[in-house]
Design a protein around this nucleic acid. Structure first.
Lengths: 171, 171
DNA sequence: GTCTATAGTCCGATAGAC
DNA sequence: GTCTATCGGACTATAGAC
């Protein structure tokens, strides 16, 4: 992240990254499948957290509320590292290749959510739509969280964005 | 598309594509920024259609309905080339790099929708959420359209998916 | 760790369309 | 005279094979 922030993602070579870590280029690719992945490898634990939180949500509440609860858990985790998340996001925002990788990670989250919902008995297309809606809410909340000057925390923004989604779809 | 379908996207070199077209590698890159883009260059006209349809929608209807009308227009256009769309989608489904490119194109559509909504006076975060909800609806409808054995057309599936989204968010 | 294919860039030259 | 299209060759870095 230091090198990507200093010289930009494209200008940074894998050899430079490996060198700063005291390793060789080859070793970098043993740990990360490609040059982008080093910025996203932490996402796996977030996906696990998300799915576990959804699976633990009470069956009595509506699917979209269960998804919101799971997103809250992820939001709370990210909120602990707000400055780190901001620096990381600035790097991603500066490079389309990194945005592509971020989007496929979000799509993977949506697929995992939909899968877990189906396991809870939600039928398609409701399961897919609830999952996609949840990710859309999270995306918007996350953008507000990193961009804004105000200090609202991420779980609050997730809740607020969900309320807004309900409002715009209730026509 | 022929080469990608025959040998797979990764196994196909740009030199082969250029060769079959009677051109050189260098010329390929003049027309397409990268090897993936050749499958997505048609998306620009769809984005224009989408935005024009949204801009033309009457101000009297709710933003999400205006977005749905715009998605209908895109759906109708795609419906004319169902078999082509299916073959193209099979290639994309077989390769993560192509999925990444598809997702960033969809994100671009969402950004354009949100922008047009703002120009119509919709405030944020409602504009972003309406746009993201619209794209989510379209994604799910499109998946059903290419995957299903039944013969429902895309505009119908867009409408059906929107109704489903309204249902799952109205808790 | 070594070797290699290929994507993608940069320099430039050429030539037809209008 | 300008615009746009082609091609050539050298080059670097990523990423995969072994």
């Amino acid at each position: 992240m230091e090198l990507y922030a200093e010289h930009g993602f494209e200008q940074t070579t894998v050899a430079e990254i490996a060198g700063r870590a005291g390793l060789t280029e080859r070793t970098f690719f043993r740990h990360f499948s490609d040059k982008r992945e080093v910025l996203f490898s932490g996402a796996d634990s977030l996906e696990q957290l998300l799915i576990a939180a959804l699976a633990d949500a009470p069956r009595s509440i509506a699917p979209i509320e269960a998804v919101a609860a799971a997103l809250d858990a992820v939001g709370a985790r990210l909120d602990e590292r707000r400055e780190f998340a901001r620096r990381r996001q600035a790097i991603i925002a500066a490079n389309p290749e990194l945005q592509e990788r971020e989007l496929i990670k979000l799509a993977s989250l949506a697929a995992a959510l939909a899968d877990t919902l189906r396991r809870r008995g939600v039928k398609d297309p409701a399961a897919s739509l609830t999952a996609e809606a949840g990710i859309a809410v999270f995306k918007v909340a996350f953008e507000r969280w990193v961009a804004e000057s105000n200090k609202q925390n991420l779980p609050f923004l997730v809740r607020d964005s969900l309320d807004e989604l309900k409002a715009v779809t209730s026509s």
